[in-house]
Amino acid sequence: DDVELRDGDWRVELKDADEEILRAVEEAIKNGASEQELRELAERLIR
């Protein structure tokens, strides 16, 4: 699993992620995405 989400800690570690993925995830976090939404976003972007 390349995506690590810690309970109560919104730092997201994406291994080997490019800047576009990181920006998309950071934007989702700023917009108040839930953990499930972040997982789905990350899975779509990593593929």
Rank of each mutant, 00 (worst) to 15 (best):
L41P: 00
D16Y: 15
G8E: 12
G32Q: 01
D18L: 08
R6P: 05
R39L: 06
V12T: 08
L22T: 05
E4Y: 04
I29F: 14
E35K: 06
E13S: 14
E37Q: 09
K30M: 12
I21V: 10
S34N: 07
R44F: 13
R44G: 05
G32L: 02
E35V: 09
R44E: 05
D2M: 11
A28P: 00
A33L: 14
D2Q: 11
E20D: 10
Q36V: 09
D2T: 11
E4S: 10
E37Y: 08
V3D: 11
D1L: 12
E4N: 10
K30C: 03
V25L: 12
R39N: 03
A24S: 06
D2W: 10
A17G: 04
E4R: 06
V12P: 05
R23E: 03
L5I: 15
E19V: 13
I29W: 15
E27F: 12
K30Y: 10
A28D: 00
D2F: 11
K15L: 14
E27Y: 14
L22C: 02
L5P: 10
W10C: 02
G8V: 07
W10S: 03
A24H: 03
L45V: 03
D16V: 07
D18A: 07
L41R: 00
L45S: 01
N31R: 12
E40T: 12
E19G: 08
E43F: 14
E26N: 05
E27H: 07
L22H: 07
L38K: 00
E43M: 15
A42C: 09
L45N: 01
R47P: 04
I21W: 04
R39S: 03
W10I: 05
A28V: 01
I29C: 04
G32T: 00
L41G: 00
L41V: 01
L41M: 06
E20F: 15
E19L: 06
I21F: 05
E35M: 10
N31F: 07
A17W: 08
A17V: 13
L22Y: 08
W10D: 02
E27R: 12
D9H: 06
D7K: 07
L22Q: 06
R44S: 08
D7R: 05
E40W: 13
A42T: 10
Q36N: 09
E20A: 14
R39W: 12
I46Q: 07
L41N: 00
R39Y: 05
N31Y: 07
L45G: 01
L5W: 14
V3G: 13
G32K: 03
D1V: 10
L22P: 00
D18H: 10
L45K: 01
K30Q: 08
N31M: 12
R44W: 11
V3R: 11
D7V: 08
K30H: 07
E43S: 14
K15Q: 04
L45A: 03
L38N: 00
D2A: 11
Q36G: 05
E20P: 05
S34W: 01
D9F: 07
R39D: 01
R23S: 06
L14N: 01
E20V: 10
G8C: 07
E4H: 14
I29V: 10
A33V: 09
A17R: 04
E13F: 15
E26A: 12
I46P: 01
A17I: 08
E13Q: 09
E40H: 07
D16P: 03
R23T: 03
L38F: 02
A42G: 02
Q36T: 09
E13R: 14
A17T: 05
A28G: 02
D9S: 07
I21M: 06
L45Q: 01
E40S: 10
E4D: 09
D7M: 07
E20M: 13
V25K: 00
E27D: 06
R23Q: 07
L5G: 12
E35T: 05
V3I: 13
L38I: 13
E4M: 10
G8L: 12
D1I: 10
K15H: 06
E19N: 08
D7S: 05
A28K: 01
R11F: 13
D9Q: 08
E37K: 03
G32I: 00
R39H: 04
V25G: 00
L22V: 12
I29M: 14
R6M: 13
K30N: 07
R44V: 04
A24K: 12
V12E: 15
E4F: 04
L41Y: 02
E40G: 04
E35G: 04
L38Q: 03
D9W: 14
A42Q: 03
D2G: 11
Q36H: 08
I29L: 13
R6S: 14
A24F: 09
L38G: 04
A33I: 09
A42P: 00
R11G: 06
V25F: 15
W10F: 05
R47D: 06
E13P: 07
G8R: 12
D16W: 12
Q36Y: 13
I46T: 08
A17K: 05
A33C: 03
E13I: 15
R47K: 12
L38W: 15
D1R: 10
N31V: 02
D7P: 07
E43C: 15
E13L: 15
I21T: 09
N31S: 10
A33F: 12
L41E: 00
E19C: 12
A42M: 15
I46K: 09
L45H: 02
I21R: 01
L14Y: 08
I21S: 03
W10T: 02
A42F: 15
E19T: 07
R44I: 02
A28E: 01
E27N: 12
G32S: 01
W10G: 03
V25Y: 05
D16L: 11
E13M: 15
L45F: 03
D9Y: 07
E19I: 14
D1P: 10
E27K: 06
R11E: 04
R39E: 03
D18N: 06
V3P: 04
L38R: 02
L41F: 04
Q36W: 14
E4W: 06
L14R: 01
L45R: 02
R6D: 13
L14S: 01
V3E: 10
D16R: 09
E4Q: 12
R11Y: 12
E19S: 07
S34T: 09
D1M: 11
D1F: 14
E27S: 08
L14A: 01
I29N: 04
A28S: 02
I21D: 01
R44T: 05
E37P: 00
E35S: 08
K15M: 12
E43L: 15
E13K: 15
L14H: 02
L14W: 05
E13V: 15
R47I: 07
R44A: 08
A33W: 14
D2E: 11
R6F: 14
R39M: 05
A42H: 06
D2L: 13
E20H: 13
G32R: 02
A33Q: 03
S34M: 02
L14I: 07
D2S: 13
V12N: 04
I21Q: 02
E4A: 13
K15G: 04
R23D: 02
D2K: 10
R47M: 15
R44N: 06
E35L: 11
D7H: 04
K15Y: 09
L5H: 14
I46S: 06
A17E: 04
N31Q: 10
W10L: 04
R23C: 05
W10H: 02
E26R: 14
R44Q: 07
D18R: 08
W10K: 02
A33E: 01
E4G: 13
D18Q: 08
L41T: 00
D7L: 11
K30S: 07
G8D: 07
R11K: 07
L14E: 01
A17Q: 07
A17Y: 11
K30D: 03
D7F: 08
L38E: 00
E26I: 09
R6T: 13
L45P: 01
D16K: 10
N31A: 06
E26T: 09
E35I: 09
G32V: 00
R44H: 06
V12K: 11
E37L: 03
V3Y: 14
A28I: 01
L45D: 01
E4L: 11
E26M: 14
D18G: 14
L45T: 01
A28F: 06
L22G: 02
N31L: 12
A33G: 02
E43A: 15
D16H: 12
D9I: 05
Q36P: 03
I29E: 14
K15W: 09
L5A: 09
K30F: 10
V12I: 08
I46G: 04
I29P: 00
L22A: 04
K15E: 11
R23Y: 08
L45E: 01
E27T: 06
R23I: 05
E20C: 07
D16E: 05
G8A: 10
D18S: 06
S34Q: 03
R39P: 00
D18T: 13
L5R: 07
E20R: 14
W10Y: 04
R39F: 05
V3F: 10
L14K: 01
L41C: 00
D9P: 03
E26Q: 05
G32N: 04
A17M: 14
L38T: 03
I46M: 15
G32D: 01
E19Y: 12
E37D: 04
E40P: 00
L5C: 11
W10Q: 02
L41W: 02
V12F: 04
S34G: 06
A24W: 09
E27Q: 10
A17L: 09
L38C: 05
E40K: 11
I46F: 14
G32H: 03
A28L: 06
L22D: 00
R6W: 15
N31K: 11
V25D: 00
I29D: 04
A24E: 09
A28R: 01
V12H: 08
E37A: 03
D1H: 13
L5N: 13
R6L: 11
I46H: 04
L45M: 06
V12S: 12
V3L: 07
G8H: 09
R6I: 09
A42E: 02
L38V: 12
L22E: 01
K15D: 05
E13D: 09
A42K: 05
E4T: 07
E43K: 15
E27G: 04
I46W: 11
V12Q: 05
L14Q: 01
E27M: 12
A33R: 04
I21G: 01
